[in-house]
Simulated assay, not measured.
Amino acid sequence: MSQKNDVCIPVSDVTSEQEQCQVSIHENFDYLQRGQWLRAAVLGATDGLVSVASLMMGVGAVKHDVRAMIITGFAGLVAGACSMAIGEFVSISSQRDVEVAQMKRGGYNDESQKDSLPNPVQAAAASAIAFMFGAIIPVLAAAFIVDHKVRLGVVVAAVSLALVVFGWIGAVLGRSPVVKSCLRITVGGWMAMAITFALTKWIGSTGL
């Protein structure tokens, strides 16, 4: 028995309530909040993977030189990471300014509440890192292969595998259908690479 304020409560009942509370917390976990961060991370990595791979496939459509593909991929990695970081910093800064202004209008000046607001610097760094993580995959896949056709095939294979992994991670952590997520993200990546390759090949063949 446990006693508080002269009221006796059976220990077994307390234990049962604690277990029920733990189950309730687990069931009511805010997957939506985690999904927002997950979406940003997966989007950044996928964007880096698909955009840089598409750039490299476009260059590979008209040039057989491995150096041209690597330089293009690296330039796309740096430019994309900077773009993602700047865009995320501006977006989160604007969102933070709106929320701070709303708090002031409501009479809330608690510093702890301001500390809980999204951090633009952290968001920018996270976006840049996620982009670079995805973008480095096609660059590394093409770096050590001399044969042109084999290099293109390896890039497509590496990107496809990475897309499946990204889709699987997003589905598992976000509690969404795995097959649907993997299929959607993989087909989207294939389409981006195919369109870039085909259009660049066509432009190169016309002599423009």
Rank of each mutant, 00 (worst) to 15 (best):
G207M: 09
L43H: 02
E17P: 00
L117N: 05
E111D: 07
A142I: 02
P138H: 11
G35Q: 04
N109P: 01
Q33C: 00
M103G: 01
G35K: 07
A198C: 08
F131I: 00
A162S: 14
K180C: 01
L77P: 02
A81T: 02
E27F: 08
V62K: 07
R151N: 12
C182R: 07
A143G: 00
V139W: 11
D30R: 10
M57V: 00
V172N: 04
A61M: 03
V14S: 12
A75M: 03
L32A: 15
L208V: 13
V121Y: 09
I9V: 14
V156N: 06
T15I: 08
F144L: 11
K149H: 13
S91F: 13
L183W: 05
A142L: 06
A68Q: 12
A142H: 03
W37R: 06
Q22C: 04
V187H: 05
M84T: 03
H26M: 11
S54Q: 05
S181A: 14
V50H: 12
A53W: 04
A101F: 10
A79M: 06
D147G: 05
L161Y: 01
A125C: 11
A192M: 14
A101K: 13
V98W: 04
D110E: 12
K201Y: 10
V139T: 03
V165Q: 07
L49S: 03
L117D: 06
M193T: 01
I129W: 01
W168I: 01
G87Q: 07
A53H: 05
N28M: 11
I137D: 09
V146F: 00
V90R: 07
A85E: 01
A41E: 00
K149D: 14
D115Y: 08
V98Q: 12
L183G: 02
M69R: 12
D110T: 02
T196W: 12
Y31N: 05
V90Y: 08
W37V: 00
A81Q: 06
I25C: 09
D47W: 03
V90P: 03
R175F: 05
H148Q: 09
A130P: 01
L38Q: 01
G76F: 05
M56R: 11
I129F: 03
V179K: 15
V165C: 11
F133E: 02
I71A: 08
R39K: 15
V159A: 14
A85I: 02
D47H: 08
G80Y: 10
Q18L: 15
C21T: 12
I136V: 14
L43C: 03
C21K: 14
R184F: 05
W37K: 06
P138S: 07
S160G: 10
G174L: 04
G174E: 04
V164F: 07
V14G: 06
D115Q: 13
N28R: 15
S181G: 05
A124R: 11
H26G: 12
L140G: 08
I145N: 07
K114T: 00
G188D: 07
A157S: 11
I136C: 11
Q18A: 15
T46W: 00
G80M: 07
I92C: 05
V155R: 11
N109M: 13
L161P: 00
D110G: 04
A45H: 00
V165K: 10
Q3H: 09
S94I: 03
L208W: 14
K63G: 00
S2F: 12
I70M: 14
